[in-house]
Design a protein around this nucleic acid. Structure first.
Lengths: 209, 209
DNA sequence: TTAAAATTAAACAAATGTTTAAAACTATAT
DNA sequence: ATATAGTTTTAAACATTTGTTTAATTTTAA
């Protein structure tokens, strides 16, 4: 059993549940069933643990956005759809880390801890935005707001990921269960965002309406 | 000068900037230039201060959503547009409080502190959702996902409000200024969300395209 | 066997929210 | 005006909690 890896896993879980500040190294040590000195020993400090978690996961952020962007066999709409797919997939499967990341990203302080992560995030964002801009130039997309369009994609996902309470209340049904783990919910979100963005980007031909 | 009110104002400002946990009562006392014992004296505790701030502001959340909903002179699309207008206006003008609220709402713990706020929030949400559902039943709206449609409205706004860093990076221009205070940005966001939701809800007639 | 690495229990210093008891201030009644 | 009761403010101390360190012990591997 790799103690170091184990601590990181438990640490991330608690950071995701309670937030970095509220989680004490005694919480982590207790849940991981290791001595609390081991956190300082292995990671130097509590912040060191957070940095390690970020480094470990940040690579995972750099997903195939760039490759999709350069794929000549796809048109702009297909690219946007694929990117939405990837974003949702990444964020849903790593939702614990994303909670931590977003919470820290939103706290505006201690920027240095995750400046790498922010860099990756903004770079990905700019790629998506540039695809939309290209579509607008080519007149296959409407003349809409590319940056805010991206904000809506990512904002929808994050809003659904972040607030456990609201998610349970609005989507949890009568039993107020958290739908985040049900695969059907992921599909539902993907479908919604893709539909909404497509409706926004493209004025459809008039069928029989 | 009302000390109590002054402490609440400074407290909210710091909670918005640094988060509740990270802000110490010494920070607040120092910035407000009052003795730190006054916080416990006036509010009982640090958490008492937070509760007071929530109570003071929560009432402000209950805006005219209900009245819009019942206004017979408006059709469904107009109602949705007006609601978006109101949401953005409320959140932008009270953006400090909304930062605090959302951060605390997202932390999943200490639910009791703001259960009132959550109640108001979810009630408002359900009104908006029911309007969309009504539009769908009347077939003036497409058969889209009402709950997720609301999630996109509110998610977009909150995503833009929350992340100072990302906002500066993507919308701040070359000088990386925070656009949140510029009135043009508010207008831009309103226009975008209204357009996007309208495109999503209504299949437009084919003009000359 | 031995040297390095990992783990443990205990102690440490700093920071935090809270309380206390005295002082200063305010307003009211005499 | 003066005394008095109540409120507000202050400085200091308090008990806890926090992250971290230390020194001894155990485990691992060469």
């Amino acid at each position: 059993m790799d103690t170091k890896e184990h601590i990181m896993q438990v640490g991330m879980q608690l950071f995701a549940e309670k937030g970095y500040e509220t989680t004490t190294i005694r919480d982590i040590a207790s849940k991981a069933k290791v001595n609390l000195a081991l956190i300082s020993y292995h990671f130097g400090s509590k912040e060191g643990l957070l940095k390690n978690i970020f480094q470990q996961r940040a690579l995972n952020l750099q997903f195939q956005i760039w490759e999709i962007s350069n794929d000549k066999s796809l048109n702009e709409l297909q690219k946007v759809h694929l990117m939405i797919d990837y974003y949702i997939d990444k964020i849903f499967t790593n939702h614990q880390f994303h909670r931590v990341m977003m919470r820290e990203l939103f706290s505006s302080q201690s920027e240095e801890v995750h400046s790498d992560t922010i860099d990756i995030f903004t770079e990905n964002a700019k790629i998506v935005i540039s695809i939309i801009e290209k579509g607008i130039k080519k007149k296959v997309f409407r003349n809409i707001d590319p940056e805010l369009c991206f904000a809506s994609i990512i904002g929808t996902i994050h809003h659904l990921m972040h607030s456990t309470i609201l998610r349970k209340r609005i989507f949890g049904g009568k039993e107020k269960k958290d739908p985040i783990l049900e695969p059907s919910f992921k599909k539902r979100v993907t479908k919604h965002i893709q539909q909404m963005i497509e409706h926004h980007l493209i004025a459809e031909k008039n069928n029989n309406n």
